[in-house]
Simulated assay, not measured.
Amino acid sequence: MSGDRVLAGIALRLLAIFFLSTMSALVKWGEHRGATLFEGMFWRQACALPVVLAFVMRGPGGLASLRTTRFRGHLARAMVGLVGMVFTFGAVILLPLAEATTFQFTVPIFATILGATLLKEPTGIQRWAAVLVGFAGVLVVAQPGGAHIAPAGAAVGLLAALFVALVAVLLRQLRDEPAGTTVFWFTALTLPLIAIPYAFHLKPHDAGTWAILAATGVVGALGQLSLTAASRLAPVTAVVPMDYSGLLWATIYGWLLFGALPAPMTWVGAPIIIASGLFIVWREHRLGRQQTMTAAPDD
């Protein structure tokens, strides 16, 4: 893989994290202005759909690339992703932005647990130790019994990370599908389902709030497409460390929009969680290389 492709992948991952961090800030800002959870979710998907379709039309195959023989896989990914969106948006609403973002850093930890339990992947003591260290970092951030983070908010934040990890497992079965196809079916299949509760939460808003809701969808779609494209250009070990730039954006948005800065213990616990996640990603990359070298035929 050329260095230029890796650098492009890293740049796209950084751009994706910026877009997704902006989306989270918009979700929370919209809620502060009176928009409900289901309104945010509906407009996230409704305004994302035209962006995704435009991306697909400009790609090879155009709209014909949306045909798929993996509909059941897309349906399963969409249903799990929809539940994950409920928890992800809920965490952003219930928690300060920096803390909600920090809980998302546990995704590699949950991915390790799911890989061992659902996929029966071999998981050595080092990765299990990293899982325990990561959850120790979660306890530092959550401060059980403290007043900074409500237990319900911490639980929703962890469930959001769990479902993101579940989506990652399901996406392995769809890795041969084009990026636009995967994003399109997720958006198209979940939008009608979100429309049902949204119909019971219709509310009038001012122009600024409607603009925020619309921007949530556009920015979210750009983030999702950038994230998928980055994974195709560069190895996971190169791009995943870029995810931690989300804490910087969450801190900036939290301060600018809500006058909130991360709690002192968040700065202590976040590096522990980040170190755990990075070790897991590095360990998986190293084991993958060893397996490739073992399987390669002798010259």
Rank of each mutant, 00 (worst) to 15 (best):
A234D: 03
V169H: 01
I273D: 03
L278W: 09
K203G: 13
L15W: 08
T187V: 13
A25G: 15
L162I: 07
I194G: 00
L20A: 05
L213T: 12
F89H: 06
E284M: 04
A16H: 06
L139G: 14
F89P: 02
G90W: 10
G153Q: 05
W185A: 02
S24G: 13
A78V: 07
G259K: 08
G246C: 09
R283V: 05
T228H: 11
W29F: 13
Q104H: 13
W255E: 06
V164L: 14
P144C: 04
A238F: 11
A25V: 13
A46L: 15
E121F: 02
G73T: 04
L174I: 00
A111C: 03
L66C: 06
T266Q: 05
F186Q: 10
M85L: 14
Q45G: 09
R77T: 03
L20I: 14
S245D: 05
H285M: 00
T190D: 00
H205P: 10
P197V: 08
V131H: 13
G246S: 14
A229G: 00
A155V: 15
V240G: 00
S24Q: 10
R44D: 02
C47Y: 03
K203V: 10
V80A: 09
T69N: 11
I194Q: 01
F186P: 01
Q104S: 14
V218L: 12
V218Y: 02
G246W: 09
L247C: 07
P144T: 08
A168Y: 01
A221S: 10
T117E: 11
L7S: 11
L202K: 08
T102Y: 02
P108G: 10
L66K: 07
P262T: 09
H205E: 05
L158Y: 02
G145C: 01
V167N: 05
